[in-house]
Design a protein around this nucleic acid. Structure first.
Lengths: 205, 205, 205, 205
DNA sequence: CATGAATGAGACTTCATTCAT
DNA sequence: TATGAATGAAGTCTCATTCAT
């Protein structure tokens, strides 16, 4: 049950090579921006000529599509598991945040691309699934926050929509500085982040 | 005492027209991304032909340059005033956050552009001042947080560098959804944000 | 009795200003080439804005036209006087060469422009007079050389057409390095040049 | 021992195609002037689209660069052989002139371009080698003439610098009218030219 | 599978020219 | 007479894409 759709890949064979090339492309997209990335840069990074990429992919856009949809598919697999677990609001938030940092760990480039490009991409029919995902996203997070306020575990004096935006953005922007294999594991980052957001940085509280 | 540099504007006079055009350009850059914005789109939005822009500006890049440097100049004017005021760490953070949201209110487009483009721009000699600003930024925020930890007003158990990143990102990423003249004033947003970051969203603390 | 035609000048008055501007334009054309010279460069050199030149002239091309035709008019005045004087072949050559260097002295820029641009200009109807001039030129020089060979004052063993080309080029190409007011007067240069061409540079002869 | 430098060609292989295209470009540059030549005209002459040229070359300027530097490299190969041969002044001049007309025969277009464009090109760092070549040129010719005067084989009453200019220019301007495969071989033209310059066109001497 | 060469659309930019003031 | 601002055509160059080999 995919969150997105089937890809019409230019050719079938050797799915590992395909994945390798997509990883390469994702790194370049993330580093330079989608528009500023030329097909030739991707090909250079992959050790081939620009034209050769078209044996594997229909277009530059379809590479981006596959990168983003693969990431979102995996993300929703994780999110759906959390949401189906019947946890309380605070525990749900904790699980979603942790899951998010794990995704950043696994798909850093894709997340960075998503952050930077999703806004203008949603206009294209091919990328409508980004808006769908955005909607489900808001449902999950906002719903959990509201449930927490109703249950008395989250403060009632904060604008819940504003809080949602803060939390959502801060989690994902981390992709812009996170380096897999760095000092902090995703779980450690999640713990620190949650501690800040849930209890504040001030002493005394 | 400018944070950046003097612009060599193609032509001196009529600074209001110049500012009008820059505002228009900034909106388009923010909405579509710098690379995806064609000079023609800016000209359309300004009600003129693409070539006509070059009477006012040397290049598309110099428009971006002027937008960003103007914004940073004003930002640092505000920041420097705060930093020179001799406030305690908590009050400094509060003042910086409030000042930041005010800048977002005044320069929404510029902030959004800065967020999206500054990373690849820093490579260009012309935009070295972005890196300089980044450095002073880190000094101001990280320094204040460290002082707060030393003074015992901020928690000592959080990774201060990680906290700095979260705080910094959360503030600026607001530019991506903030709409001047919307439901919340910059001061109101700052208050909510500070309350969340300082005291946490959980009840009890 | 003009060699060319009337100019339709954009406006009548102040012929000295007109000449000043044309001199300025000629210098820039000579220094940078006609195509590479922008109207703005001419205006800069004249201390005005590009658009202002159009009060004085119809177009950039008409400036070039007026520069070249004025020069050719004066040149042919001198040449016609020489040719009408009924001199012998050697004396005619001497007089033409001397007259030529005097023209270079007076119209250095125009001569340099003529050298560089006349070839592609002859295609334009407006500049047909350049081809006419070229023809009369060949008549005058080649005819004199042939007369000299027939009279036995010039060597019969040289290809007269080839000789004509060498002589012609050598004279005019001097415009590319000649600086009015330099070490050598036009007459001195003419004398040296004639001595070389008529008697050779080798000792003994 | 190259007179100029290595080219960073956009792509390495198929050097014959590259040379074909450069020859085409050189013809158009020579016929119309570098500035007046549009990339589209070159492409038309080569039977391709304008953009396609950029697969082979970095820019229009780099085509010009390669045309000129290739020509100068070959020219200096010939000149250096002459200068290393230890000939007397008169024989050196004869050999240099003959070599020059041979180069015009082989590189007519390049020579014509060099004549017309080198002056404003020398300002560009990329074309500094033109000035270097110019300097070595003057050394070779002027030095030989001076040696000839000292040895008593050339006349002492002529301004040697003026003579140098006349000789230099006249040789090279020939590229503007010379047509390879025409009535005269390069050697025949050289002989006629040398006869004129060395012994003069006047009978008796 | 990959290369080499080309296409064609469209980008940024330049510039002669116009015109109201 | 000159300015300031704009026009519009054209120029150089980039780049995603195609395709024969």
């Amino acid at each position: 049950m995919s969150a997105t759709k089937k890809k019409n890949q230019a050719n079938a064979p050797a799915p590992e090579r395909r994945r390798e090339l997509l990883d390469t492309a994702a790194e370049v997209f993330a580093a330079q921006g989608y528009n500023a990335t030329t097909v030739r840069k991707i090909a250079d990074a992959a050790g081939m000529l620009a034209g050769s990429l078209y044996y594997h992919f229909d277009s530059k856009e379809s590479m981006l599509d596959e990168i983003l949809s693969t990431f979102l598919d995996e993300l929703w697999e994780g999110y759906d598991a959390v949401l189906a677990a019947g946890l309380g609001p605070r525990e749900t938030i904790e699980a979603l945040v942790t899951e998010s940092f794990r995704e950043i760990d696994r798909h850093r480039a894709a997340v960075a691309i998503y952050q930077k490009e999703s806004r203008h991409l949603t206009d294209l029919p091919r990328f409508h699934y980004l808006a769908d995902s955005q909607r489900r996203f808001e449902e999950a997070w906002l719903g959990t926050l509201e449930r927490g306020v109703a249950d008395g575990v989250f403060r009632a004096d904060l604008d819940v929509r504003l809080t949602y935006r803060f939390v959502r953005d801060t989690v994902w922007v981390a992709a812009s500085w996170y380096r897999p294999g760095g000092r902090h594991s995703p779980e450690e980052i999640a713990r620190q982040y949650l501690s800040m957001v849930l209890d504040g940085i001030a002493v005394g509280g």
